[in-house]
Design a protein around this nucleic acid. Structure first.
Lengths: 347, 347
DNA sequence: CTGAAAGCGCTTACAG
DNA sequence: CTGAAAGCGCTTACAG
């Protein structure tokens, strides 16, 4: 920058003003032109870290996700990236492996990098409350990151933390309705872990909607230990053992549904002739399964985008000044009907 | 830091020395203890950005990938993260969408953030040469980032840029051998785009190995326009039209194989009875396809890990001082035999 | 409209 | 072993 100043024959402070769109109005147009030219000739690039040190804003956002390897997250991350990009912010994503210790370390890493805000797609909600400093940290949640703005992604919290999540109730409603219309009356639910807001909300929605329709079957909800294929297999097996006459299974996510599919086949049950099966998320390749999986498509990219925008809004960093100050958003899903659901065969 | 200094009754320079493991040896143990205690009481955390400004090392690495949404990359990214983590560096990943303009913008973003080095998993190789400043930038590759160390991931370059890639020749050799052993003699290859080093290398390997075995069929290589399902369908259809009597297809990647599988089924060809099919990468869910796909498992995590280590090595930032200075690594794959390959039926 | 000065939070020769 | 000083590359009141 000193070089640019010298070449343009001005002070560095003028270079700074000239090059900053927000302040370039205050400097004479000819001067701006001279500075711009000098900076281009020199190939000058602003050191954004130095700027951050001075302005106390790093224009960086930290995002914690459990596992990048889970296909649910990449589209979300891309959405966040897109939103941040518009406001010239950078994203740092860190994996936490769903491990509370790693979550704390990751949080520290990211906070130490002076992020301006946090996006949490992470499981252990206790952390969030602690983060906000609103309650004494629950056991195991000792990290404090001094009032940094945070928005939860794909997770809700019991406190009043901002979030954007899929609309689980609406999504499950779509599934139950679809199954009802086909004529199913004995429907099971392979639920996700109860300590995830998503697993919990979907199970709750399942009970609510089947009950409302008068078709809730006691014992029809089996909770898997994790959102993965193996736990899906185990839960489905348990469910089938308990209620062999189920004609449809609603899984809390596609991986769980894949687990169900595999035990169903193993037991000689045909999908959808004997048992209809529905997933959640519409992850890649699920349309090439046999049969192609009926599932709920969640607007993952949008979720990320909205979450990014929301956080930027909290920072006063996005263009639209008087934009909606909505702080809790639930995005509706879309039912994608494929081949894994059909009318139950008459018995 | 000033607060810590005051509380410990020392100068900030002493605080700095005491808290830095590399220099804490030079300060009296009691002083260190006092400083550490003060910093803990105050919850002091080093501002790594300020440190970076002073030391001219951000301890940050930039990584460009075409598309995080492609399941191939997340494990690679995790590997990189793991390697960097050990040396206390942070990763910034940016998507380029395989678009040359976005690649340049991404590069700029990341370079502007003062990264110490670059990991490029990106397609447009021209850029790399330009990056290294070894040749006049090819048309369209105008970005210059002044001698930053770079290592290519999953890509090779014609220059002498460091890289870590899958060993495509070895992987394809595994496939061809497997097919040969089963008795196939008319094998087709659905190749990836020729302008990707991976697509190119695999096609080359396919020709070399089938030729060496005396079973190369002229016209048996059809190049897909991209590594995706639809292009795989198109290429497979073209291949089948031209050579209806193929008994096996080797696809340059799993997505391409999925495309093949779908046209094969559409045409009433059974896999593996009529046509055997092999993919590459072993992406998630490919084992739940019908039939489960035989494929080559690439050590993605390891690739990322090695690449990260290599770059750290170039920066002199990793623990092991005299470590191997290998600069071009090709990691062997493993053939995962599942149900999509079998002996050809006798005619 | 522009310059001189101070300062963001650190590290590191340089003295002592 | 420790302090005082300078400086990394910026921005921003404060004068003029």
């Amino acid at each position: 920058m000193a070089d640019v100043a010298r070449r343009a024959g001005v002070d560095t402070s003028t270079v700074s003003r000239a090059l900053n769109p927000r302040t370039s109005g205050r400097v004479r147009p000819e001067t701006v032109a001279r500075v711009v030219q000098a900076s281009e000739e020199l190939g000058y690039r602003l050191n954004v870290l130095a700027r951050g040190l001075r302005t106390q804003r790093s224009r960086t956002i930290g995002m914690l996700i459990p596992d990048l390897t889970n296909p649910f997250f990449p589209p979300v991350v891309r959405g966040v990236e897109a939103a941040l990009d518009e406001a010239d912010h950078t994203l740092i994503v860190v994996n936490t492996d769903d491990d509370i210790d790693r979550e704390e370390r990751s949080l520290r890493t990211v906070v130490d990098r002076q992020v301006d805000g946090l996006l949490l797609a992470t499981t252990h909600l206790g952390m969030v409350r602690s983060a906000q400093g609103r309650t004494p940290p629950p056991a195991g949640a000792t990290v404090d990151f001094g009032g940094l703005p945070v928005v939860l992604v794909n997770r809700r919290s019991d406190g009043d933390v901002a979030h954007v999540t899929p609309d689980d109730h609406q999504g499950i409603a779509l599934v139950v309705e679809h199954l009802l219309e086909l004529g199913h009356e004995r429907i099971g639910h392979v639920a996700g872990p109860a300590d995830t807001s998503t697993g919990h909300a979907r199970a709750e929605a399942f009970e609510a909607h089947t009950t409302a329709a008068g078709v809730f079957v006691p014992g029809s909800v089996e909770t898997a230990s994790a959102f993965a294929v193996e736990p899906g297999r185990a839960a489905c097996a348990a469910l089938l053992d308990r209620l062999p006459d189920l004609t449809a299974i609603c899984a809390a996510n596609d991986l769980l549904a894949v687990g169900c599919l595999s035990v169903l086949k193993e037991r000689g049950l045909r999908v959808p002739e004997d048992v209809s099966l529905v997933g959640f998320n519409d992850m890649p390749l699920v349309d090439f399964l046999e049969p192609a999986l009926t599932t709920v498509q969640v607007p993952q990219y949008d979720m990320g985008f909205r979450a990014g925008q929301m956080l930027l809004g909290m920072l006063g960093a996005n263009g639209d000044s008087g934009g909606s100050a909505e702080t809790r958003v639930e995005l509706p899903g879309r039912l994608i009907v494929r081949r894994s659901t059909a009318e139950p065969v008459a018995t």
